[in-house]
C-alpha cells in the first residue's frame, strides 16, 4: 500500500537529487541487476517503516468495534463492501478532546523553544567566540554537555518540591488569576521555565558546534576595530546564526512538544485546562469496555500534526539538528 504512494512523492520532493545524479558521469549505465535489487530492498524497507503509520491512518477512519474487527488492519475501509465501516466521527471526537490540549501545548512549547534557543545562542557565543582560558572554560563546557545526558528522573522530586514549596507560581501571579484566568495556567509558566532550563544544554552545544566553525577573521577584525562583545554578537554573530537558529528551533520545538514527563509531573491531571495534548492523548480512548483504537489513532495523528508539519517542511534542518 505504501509502495505505490512513495514514487509519486519522490518525484515531487527531489528534483535536486535528480540533477545531481544526472551530473555524475555514467549514472545511467550503472543501472544493473544489483542496483535494481538495492532499490527494491530500500523501497521494501520503506514500506516496512511506514506500516505502523499507515495502519494507524486507515484505522482512524474505521468504526469501532465492528469496523476494526471486520477489516484487515492495513486496509482502508474504502472498498465497496467495507464502505459501511468508514467514518470520520473518530477524528471529530478526538479533535474535540484534544483541541484545548493543542492550545495549552502551544502556549508553553512556543515561548520555551524561542527562549531556550536564544539563551543557548548567547551562552555558546560567550563560551566560543570570547577568549578566555581553556583551563576554566573546559569544565564549564563539560557541565553544559553533561546536562544533555542527565536522566531527568534524577531531578524530578526536587523539581516538584521547587514548584510547590519554593516558587509557587499560582500564588506569585495572583493578579493574573484575578483577571479571571484559571489558576491552573500557572502550570504553563512552570512548564516554560522548566523546559528552558533543561533545553539550554542541547541548544548551547548545537550553537557552539556552529560558532566554532564561524570565520574568526571577521570577528577578530571587528574586535580590533573596537567593537564590544555585544556589538559583535548583534552585528555579526546573530545575523550569521540564522541557519542554526532554524535547526535549533525546529529540534527544540519537536522535543518540547513531544515530551510527556514534565507535563505529567507539573500538570499531572489531563482534566486540567492547562493539560497539554500529549497528556490528554496518553489517556484517550480507554474505557472499561476496552480500547477504542480508531479514536486513539485519530488522536495520535492530531497530536503529531504540528511536529509532522514542521518535519515535512524542515526535514533537512531536523536531520542536521539530530546529526550534530
Amino acid at each position: 500500500m505504501s509502495d505505490t504512494s512513495t514514487p509519486a512523492t519522490d518525484g515531487e520532493l527531489d528534483g535536486s537529487d535528480d540533477a545531481r545524479a544526472a551530473d555524475r558521469p555514467g549514472a545511467l549505465e550503472r543501472i544493473d541487476a544489483s542496483r535494481v535489487a538495492l532499490y527494491g530492498f530500500l523501497i521494501g524497507l520503506l514500506a516496512v517503516y511506514m506500516v505502523p503509520i499507515e495502519s494507524g491512518l486507515v484505522t482512524s477512519i474505521k468504526t469501532s468495534p465492528t469496523g476494526v474487527s471486520e477489516t484487515l488492519p492495513y486496509m482502508p475501509p474504502l472498498l465497496p463492501e467495507t464502505l459501511q465501516f468508514f467514518t470520520t466521527e473518530k477524528w471529530q471526537t478526538a479533535f474535540d478532546a484534544l483541541s484545548r490540549g493543542l492550545v495549552s501545548s502551544a502556549l508553553y512549547a512556543v515561548p520555551a523553544t524561542i527562549i531556550s534557543a536564544f539563551a543557548g545562542s548567547l551562552a555558546a557565543y560567550g563560551l566560543t567566540q570570547a577568549t578566555w582560558k581553556e583551563r576554566y572554560k573546559a569544565p564549564i563546557l563539560a557541565l553544559f554537555v553533561a546536562g544533555i545526558f542527565i536522566p531527568l528522573q534524577a531531578v524530578l522530586v526536587p523539581l516538584s518540591q521547587f514548584w510547590s514549596n519554593i516558587v509557587n507560581v499560582a500564588d506569585l501571579l495572583g493578579f493574573v488569576w484575578a483577571l479571571g484566568i484559571n489558576d491552573d495556567y500557572a502550570g504553563i509558566v512552570e512548564m516554560i521555565v522548566t523546559h528552558v532550563a533543561y533545553g539550554i544544554p542541547i541548544c548551547t552545544v548545537l550553537f557552539r558546534s556552529y560558532y566554532k566553525n564561524m570565520s574568526e577573521e571577521m570577528i577578530e577584525s571587528a574586535r580590533l576595530d573596537g567593537a564590544t562583545m555585544r556589538g559583535v554578537y548583534r552585528r555579526i554573530v546573530l545575523p550569521l546564526s540564522t541557519p542554526m537558529f532554524a535547526v535549533v528551533l525546529i529540534y527544540q520545538f519537536t522535543q518540547i512538544w513531544n515530551d510527556l514527563l514534565f507535563a505529567l509531573i507539573l500538570i499531572s491531571s489531563s482534566a486540567s485546562p492547562a493539560a497539554p495534548v500529549v497528556l490528554i492523548l496518553a489517556g484517550l480512548g480507554q474505557s472499561m469496555e476496552g480500547q477504542d483504537f480508531p479514536l486513539r489513532m485519530a488522536g495520535a495523528f492530531i497530536a503529531a500534526l504540528p511536529t509532522l508539519a514542521v518535519y515535512v517542511a524542515f526535514g533537512e534542518e531536523f536531520a542536521e539538528g539530530v546529526a550534530s
Partner: peptide, 27 residues
C-alpha cells in the same frame, strides 16, 4: 537517487512523540 527522500522517511518516526508511537505500536 532520491537519497533525501529515503533519508526523510527513515528519520520520520523520530519526529513523533513517544506518546504517539506508543498508540501506533499498541495497535
Amino acid at each position: 537517487r532520491f537519497e533525501n527522500t529515503f533519508r526523510t522517511i527513515y528519520l520520520l518516526p523520530m519526529s513523533l512523540s513517544f506518546v504517539v508511537t506508543a498508540q501506533f505500536w499498541l495497535w
